[in-house]
């Protein structure tokens, strides 16, 4: 299985390559990619330099152009596709049907992957993308069990890529409107869930309150690990008590499931975290590279030991071990 690693800056890109990535995914510094945070991402020239750095070390580069173009204004997205192809990207990660159509027609030899933002979670949807645009790989949404992934992989000839570590979104990705509701800015079109412009923290020494727009997302006691200010991972007070209604603020860690994912026919393992620092990239990539080396050698795969890097300092195997239905 290939190890697909994130990078939000050229320095993080080099860290991912040096730590053992088979491929690095990244995006341009604008609304065309789903990690459009201030100070993050690549200029056109930085992307060209990154591709050169990666190819010199036999590493692939996957360029994410995975937000949805604004109606009637596809130029920025078209330019990102053209630039990525000219830069020598080994694949484009796309979500929008119009953009897939543009890329398939304008760059027929370019390898195309379906972004997780397209929420293609069943063989019918995946086959559509394959037949219409010739896509070669699908990044599966983080809502399927290992058993379901095996069924999808068996029912299609499109390669499957699954997340194994990092931020865990259990919504219908690319369709979720929670952040839009709270901030008026769509993550699916602007590229940022819970944009920093609408986030505030207040710490009085005993508690830390996180807010998104007008909503209080969480109140952390001094001895509690903190989490991202996303509405889906907020702590709600209801008549039934206080708790996390949608999902706990935890990170995915599927290291222990690598043998099952291999058996399921998965082609590639993806680490989330283009918004994270070099220290995260180096530690997580190295940990999963070691896990894959152990797996290939027939040795038991050790637990990743990456809790300190995880949201809420907690991990879950998420839907991969789906027990709630």
């Amino acid at each position: 299985m290939e190890l697909i690693c994130p990078a939000g800056t050229p320095a993080a890109f080099e860290a991912a390559v040096d730590a053992g990535a088979d491929a690095v995914y990244c995006g341009y510094r604008d609304a065309t990619n789903a990690r459009n945070f201030p100070g993050l991402n690549f200029s056109y020239q930085e992307m060209r330099d990154a591709v050169r750095y990666a190819h010199a070390r036999r590493v692939h580069v996957l360029v994410a152009v995975n937000t949805f173009p604004k109606a009637g204004q596809p130029e920025l997205w078209h330019r990102a596709v053209d630039e990525a192809c000219d830069a020598g990207a080994d694949a484009l990660i796309l979500a929008d049907i119009g953009l897939l159509d543009y890329a398939a027609k304008k760059h027929p030899k370019q390898r195309l992957h379906i972004s997780v933002q397209a929420a293609a979670a069943n063989p019918d949807a995946i086959r559509f993308y394959q037949q219409a645009f010739g896509v070669r790989r699908v990044v599966l949404p983080r809502v399927l069990s290992v058993h379901e992934i095996a069924a999808v992989a068996a029912a299609t000839t499109v390669e499957t890529e699954v997340f194994v570590f990092g931020g865990l979104c259990v919504m219908a990705e690319g369709r979720c409107s929670l952040s839009s509701y709270a901030t008026g800015k769509s993550p699916n079109m602007n590229g940022v869930c819970s944009p920093a412009s609408h986030v505030t923290y207040a710490d009085d020494g005993d508690t830390m309150v996180s807010r998104l727009g007008a909503f209080t997302i969480n109140v952390f006691r001094r001895d509690e690990a903190a989490a991202y200010p996303t509405l889906c991972k907020g702590r709600f007070v209801t008549s039934a008590g206080e708790g996390y209604l949608f999902e706990d603020p935890v990170s995915l860690d599927a290291a222990s499931l690598l043998p099952g994912l291999k058996e399921a026919g998965v082609t590639a393992l993806k680490i989330e975290g283009r918004q994270r620092g070099r220290a995260y990239i180096a530690d997580v990539v190295r940990s999963f590279r070691q896990a894959l080396t152990d797996l290939e050698a027939g040795r038991p795969v050790a637990a990743s030991g990456l809790k300190a890097m995880s949201e809420g300092q907690s991990n879950t195997e998420g839907a991969y071990r789906k027990t709630w239905r």
């Binding site: 800056t9 100070g39 920093a196 949201e311």
Partner: peptide
């Protein structure tokens, strides 16, 4: 990693979060 320091409560941030994120990313790079 800045986010890990935030999760562990070693670091607290207040004020303009866009500026915090931009500074963190610029320095990390």
């Amino acid at each position: 990693d800045g986010d890990a320091l935030f999760f562990s409560r070693d670091l607290t941030v207040e004020g303009d979060m866009e500026a915090v994120v931009a500074l963190r990313n610029a320095l990390d790079d």
